[in-house]
Amino acid sequence: MLSRISTYLFLRPRLVLLLLLGPPLLYMLVVYLGSLFALLVNSFFYLEEFTGLIVREFTLRTYALIFNPANREIFFRTTLMAAAVTVTDALLAFPLAYYIARFASPRLKTWLLIAVTIPLWSSYLVRVYAWKLILAKEGILSWFINLLHLNPILDWLLSIPAIGGSSLSLSPLGMFIVFAYIWLPYMIIPVQTALERVPNSLLEASGDLGAKPYQTFRNVILPLAFPGVVAGSIFTFSLTLGDFIVPLSLGNSKFFIGQAVYSYQGTGGNIPLAAAMTMGPVVIMVIYLLVARKLGAFDAL
């Protein structure tokens, strides 16, 4: 019986393809893209301010709201934060990924990869709160800075209007630290994978042709690792753009996109505006990917 089924399927590769791809494709279309589509549709409705009811009529007035100065500032602030976090993570991840990919023994490599991913095993919320405690006025970081007599530097940093605040745990600077920490594994893994795929003979060939190690790094390693960096940056950038928990727990009164969406759809009850705000990061990501493609990030794929 079993062999008859096997033979039947063997002779019908299209049916096998359908059976394999059907369920996930259905899920993708209905649940995944469907919800995104519902979001898109909702963003073209609007909230009637007097009645507080949603009017299901096609309109662009909700999108017009996005371009008022307060919301524009939110977009600008969030994009800037995402860019800063992405650059920082790329700089932090590269040396570690390089070490894991090229120098670590197989045993050490396993342990390092486990160490990199361990934070992902625990709840993200818990880690954010842990960081809140670390960064608090009486927290361990303040204590340590005190120990090193570096308080003036910290105070000076916190006094800068755009990034400062009353303490690290209530400032954009603190948010930046936590974002950079939280998304770091998502940068390390793709960069490490990209570096792993660079055959040793390419590096030897470069040296053989007269390139000193730093020249090999610039001309061979970096260009070949670039797609990995871009892949990682897609994670760090988009995750920062949409996140609302970190700004909610560590931020000040200045909103970020995720936070704004959260409050519009919750307490505000303004689903159309929340939906329109959500389309913001989608558009920003599309632009980001187009730029990355222009830079040749996907040529090696």
Binding site: S201, L202, E204, A205, S206, G207, D208, K212, V220
Partner: peptide
């Protein structure tokens, strides 16, 4: 080190730089 020796190697797997064109590969040295 290799970069201070005036020898060059043709590798078994050719080790051509995949992100460069033929011209750029040849001109590398």
């Amino acid at each position: 080190p290799p970069y201070e020796r005036s020898v060059n190697t043709v590798f078994q797997d050719y080790a051509l730089f995949p992100h460069m064109t033929v011209g750029e590969n040849i001109a590398y040295g």
